[in-house]
Nucleic acid binder design. Structure first.
Lengths: 239, 239
DNA sequence: AGCTTATTAAATGTCTGACATTTGCGCAAG
DNA sequence: CTTGCGCAAATGTCAGACATTTAATAAGCT
């Protein structure tokens, strides 16, 4: 695979990393392939070798590439990616053609984890946590239905789930909130956003909120599971 | 805080990063403090500015530092650390004075997560997963009791839990296995390793193994919880 | 022919010095 | 007291040469 198919870029090693990462995530290179050389990348995008090296350092840290002196740069397979690296979430967000295997894996994780997280949140939530949750839910309500507010709605959706993870008051769970963004963003492109499904989604989210507010761990657990059942349908994972 | 208290190092930006990271994790600098400048670090350890920059790049990616041109390098607080970065696990492993808040947070995560993971493993485990689990468990048995095999025993302990995460056959859960190593290694230094507690720990691990082997999700869930109750006692989190 | 050993080419890694850019501070004019 | 200018100090960037590792190739010996 060559670099010719990639769009131009404008300034900064971060953007270059973003560009190359999205190409890798989209499967432009097969695992095991040799990635273009530093100098070639520099020529193609008209950037210095330093910028290229900085970008490739990020990709290597994220487990997307494997570099060894003399041999070159190899593309690693999906199983080796560091999915929990915050940079990965950034790169995955907004990517239309995310590997279905990946979407499914992240969903399966959320389906098993979020009920537990919601239960923890019901135990540990403070006043500010509830405020965040309510604010996010209100935003979801206000942006529901309008077609041109779909992106905004997704942001509130992300905020709601992120607030749930934060409310667990556990450092580890909290950082996992990064994974939500790409998962929820994938919803925008895959779901039809019919009115009745949106209402259903809102109702299930409200039950999570209420359960956490009433400190009902069991209800929070089942409500979170119900939200994700709705999500699975919208993602097309189950009919 | 100065660099004078740090041990010398020998070659490689990775080792330098390891050294500085452990100093940061041990709390040698307070959050908000300004970290030594690149040139000073280079002088002190007799390495080039390149090596220093490479090391600091890793620490920055892990959320330990925040660098801005002109201002300098600031130390970030514990809540900002990227605990899920594999490098962090490497750095935390073998650190004697790990922040109790961190040990507790990781333990709380495991206590809520591992029952779910064990249940998933009971559903999804294949033949090779069972083999890994049995091999690790056998290693734990063989190295129990002997004082000079404590490190080896811990390795088998890590392998057992890691095999459980792997057996869930979920890409996200699997990567979380990194967190196990520092958590379990902390056990070595904190627990008294009396014979009866070791026997008890082994018995509970065996129940997890049996439950997964028999594909009993509920039993796996409760057995994993029992293992972690034992761990909590050994960690001194509960009496 | 087959195996071992130099040689060479090609890629990433490293060093060095200079320069660019950003930030915070001091100082002076208004 | 505020504003603006300029200086100093820190990280960021660049360019070029060099070092190191790796794989392939050719030479040479048995």
């Amino acid at each position: 695979m060559t670099l010719d198919a990639l769009p131009p870029h404008q300034g900064g090693a971060e953007q270059l990393a973003h560009l190359l990462a999205q190409a890798l995530l989209a499967g432009h290179w097969q695992p095991g392939d040799t990635f273009p050389r530093e100098l070639d990348i520099g020529k193609h995008f008209a950037v210095s070798r330093n910028q290229v090296r900085n970008a490739l350092t990020s990709l290597t840290a994220a487990g997307l590439l494997e570099r060894t002196a003399g041999r070159g740069t190899l593309v690693r397979k999906l199983g080796e990616w560091h999915l929990l690296d915050p940079l990965m979430s950034e790169w995955m967000t907004g990517l239309v053609n995310l590997d279905p295997q990946l979407v499914r894996a992240i969903y399966a994780f959320r389906y098993s984890a979020e009920p537990v997280v919601a239960a923890l949140a019901a135990q540990a939530a403070q006043a500010d946590d509830l405020e965040r949750l309510e604010c996010a839910f209100a935003g979801m309500e206000n942006t529901a239905g309008s077609v041109d507010k779909r992106a905004e709605h997704a942001e509130y959706d992300v905020a709601f789930h992120d607030a749930t993870y934060r409310a667990s008051h556990n450092l580890v769970w909290r950082q996992m909130g990064h994974l939500l963004r790409p998962s929820i963003m994938a919803l925008i492109h895959r779901s039809q956003h019919r009115t009745d499904t949106l209402d259903d989604s809102l109702a299930r989210h409200r039950q999570v909120l209420d359960a956490i507010r009433h400190r009902d761990t069991h209800a929070a657990e089942t409500a979170a599971r119900e939200v994700l059942r709705r999500t699975a349908i919208d993602l097309g994972i189950v009919s």
